[in-house]
Design a binder for these strands. Structure first.
Length: 618
RNA sequence: GCCUCGGUAGCUCAGCCUGGUAGAGCGUGUGCUUGGUAAGCACAAGGCCGCGGGUUCAAACCCCGCCCGAGGCUCCA
């Protein structure tokens, strides 16, 4: 339904001539006049046909809201077809208008309704204040389906257990969590939510202070701006996860970011999910922005010719970007965004045996990722109960790999498209958890999207499908790194990022201007190596420069003065140990290169001399 | 989306209750200082007090609406 709401000094209409669809009305309804009214021009649309009741209720609410804002004294309902290009059937439109009139009257408003389906002359005078002209669109359909999905989910019953590395399955309520604080926090967050902590998550302050990421008020909430240092870290994470996944055997592809709402397979799939999408209008078609690479890869797989010899078959895309129009109140810094970057891999396998093999390998790959970032994490594995019963040893094998107790959630029935998934979660400073790595065994979508392969006997068959995000959202990985750095600082340790992710790995600080030339030589030396070095050539004291470097969490601070210049060595302040070490430039370069080994390397995207470097933020 | 809190210099914040010339620290610029491992000194520039409306002789301050952020609820494919 489309609504155009005008706050008018007066409105007057007179029906002149019937159209084919004219409503039969009493003589006295053919003309009318109202003063100090809210005139509601209404077009009832096709999409309203199945949801008349809800549309009427919502329209009445909108009108009520505006009515009280502008302090009108009566409502005039005026059928106005020209607001929409997709009109409802006239009969239904009349009914909707009548019930809207009834609804408003029931809510205590004085209502005048103009007849439907007549050519009418009308005159009005709009008040012209800021609220005096408003248009509203009321769309019920998707939300209705949405709430159905939500309801079904609410009914889902599940039970929680802890599985120890020794293979013991204990109901979570009976498990003694002492010594497993991380798991306790994770469990409590998953099952009870959190207690009220009313402070800003520390990573939000850190991401700004370190000039990594910031809010962008010029965009939709949940869309962030990335400064050079943040972009560098993001790029390194993206390159590394892509590297891991390609080495594992995935084929990298790229798929569109938007899809046709009306596409039959997509729309059915879409309605299984409660979250909302961004909508893009192109000509008169509506598209939604993808929330993962699923669709693009399904549609691609559907068109592929696949033999059993090709399985397992893996497609991968770094979704730059994925979009989820989260409710505004759910957004939180880098933890929860509306636009984010996520690696998404789908693996086709011929049977459950192969699915489990792949699941295990992807589980290990995710473990490796978490280790490379130095993140502490907790593990949850969620099963449909019957599937768990058949695969106990598999669960035990996974718990053993982790080497500490993990959470198990068992669902009585399968609501989602998967029978099993794992999640690696990190706890943050507010004792909340966020999922990073996850892999799911999907038993539904290959069939839904008609993805087939030809088996040994020449028969077309539907494969099983694994969804994998080895790192989880890239943005969220930075959130985890910052939150855990903050937690370490709270315990009295120095906060830091892994060296391979540190924007500046070596900061060269000359003791005085006399040592600047020597410092420049060192800078030139590191530039030729796989080391991100920069030079503090500002006019400040040594202490001040050290302090600035410490505040930036720089892993190696190289101080060079007359002594170093003569002895051709450098004195390095090592962040991880807090020690001052005398080293040669080669030794330092080798040390950093060792820490960069196997990781992508990107040059510092900023001027090497601090005096040449602008500030992105105070 | 709902509820609560916040938005003042590039940044962090005070001022608002009790309306009357807009403040501090950091950062930035300039000058002095050339300092040996976490803040050297001085001076200066820098403001649509989030936006719109209202009340008032007068609004950063009081009232209403909106926008943005954070937290809670809800939600989290």
């Amino acid at each position: 339904m489309k609504l155009l709401l005008l706050h008018v000094d007066h409105i007057e209409f007179k029906a002149k001539q019937k159209t084919k669809v004219a409503e039969q009305v009493a003589e006295d309804m053919l003309a009318g006049r109202a003063e100090e009214a809210l005139a509601a021009f209404v077009a009832v649309e096709k999409a309203d046909e199945g949801n008349a009741k809800e549309v009427v209720r919502r329209a009445a609410e909108e009108i009520e809201k505006v009515y009280s804002q502008v302090k009108a004294q009566r409502v005039v309902l005026y059928p106005y077809a020209h607001l929409s290009s997709s009109l409802a059937k006239p009969q239904i439109a009349v009914e909707v208008l009548k019930s809207l009139e009834e609804e408003l009257k029931a809510r205590g408003y004085e209502v005048l309704r103009a007849p439907f389906g007549w050519y009418k002359a009308f005159e009005l005078r709009c008040k012209g204040h800021p609220l005096s002209e408003l248009s509203r669109e009321i769309r019920v359909e998707e939300e209705k389906k949405e709430s159905l999905a939500l309801k079904a989910e609410k009914k889902l019953k599940s039970e929680w257990y802890v599985l120890t590395p020794e293979g013991e399955l204990i109901p979570a309520q009976k498990f003694d969590f002492s010594g497993h604080e991380g798991l306790r926090i994770f469990y409590e967050y998953e099952t009870k939510g959190t207690r009220a902590v009313t402070e800003e998550p520390p990573h939000i302050r850190l991401m700004k202070e370190h000039e990594l990421v910031d809010h962008e008020p010029g965009s939709d909430p949940g869309n962030l701006r990335w400064y050079p240092k943040g972009k560098l870290i993001k790029k390194l994470l993206e390159q590394r996860v892509t590297q891991l996944v390609l080495e594992y055997g995935a084929m990298e592809v790229e798929t569109p970011v938007m899809y046709d709402f009306a596409h039959p397979k997509l729309s059915r799939y879409l309605h299984r999910f409660p979250a909302r999408q961004y909508v893009v209008i192109s000509d008169d078609k509506e598209y939604f922005l993808r929330f993962a690479a699923c669709f693009g890869q399904y549609l691609m797989m559907h068109d592929m010719t696949i033999s059993h010899r090709h399985l397992p078959l893996r497609l991968y895309e770094l979704t730059h970007y994925s979009f989820r129009r989260e409710q505004s109140g759910e957004l939180a810094g880098l933890k929860r965004l509306r636009t984010f970057t996520m690696p998404d891999m789908h693996t086709l396998v011929k049977d459950m045996e192969q699915a489990k093999q792949e699941f295990l390998r992807q589980f290990r790959l995710s473990m490796r990722w978490m280790e490379e970032l130095g993140l502490e994490y907790e593990v949850a594995i969620r099963f449909v109960r019957s599937f768990y019963e058949e695969n106990r040893e598999f669960a035990e094998e996974l718990a053993k790999l982790i080497g500490k107790p993990i959470l198990i959630e068992l669902w009585d029935e399968r609501f989602f498209y998967f029978v099993m998934k794992f999640e690696f979660s990190v706890n943050d400073a507010q004792r909340k958890a966020a999922t990073l790595s996850t892999v799911q065994i999907d038993v539904e979508n290959a069939e839904r999207f008609d993805i087939t392969y030809v088996d040994e006997h020449g028969e077309r068959r539907h494969p099983l499908l694994l969804h994998a995000s080895i790192s989880g959202g890239i943005d969220r990985n930075l959130y985890a790194l910052l939150e855990q750095a903050y937690l370490r600082a709270k315990r009295g340790e120095k906060p830091s990022l892994p060296t391979w992710l540190s924007p500046t790995q070596v900061r060269i600080i000359p003791v005085s201007e006399q040592n600047l030339a020597y410092a420049e030589e060192l800078l030139a030396f590191f530039r030729k190596r796989r080391v991100r070095a920069d030079l503090d050539d500002e006019a400040a004291t040594l202490q001040k420069k050290i302090r600035n470097a410490e505040k930036e969490w720089i892993p190696y601070i190289a101080v060079v003065g007359a002594r170093e210049q003569e002895g051709s060595y450098i004195t390095v302040r090592v962040r991880s140990t807090g020690e001052q070490v005398r080293m040669t430039k080669e030794e330092l370069a080798e040390q950093v290169e060792r820490e960069n080994e196997g990781k992508p390397f990107v040059k510092l995207p900023l001027p090497e001399r601090l005096s040449q470097r602008p500030r992105f933020r105070g």
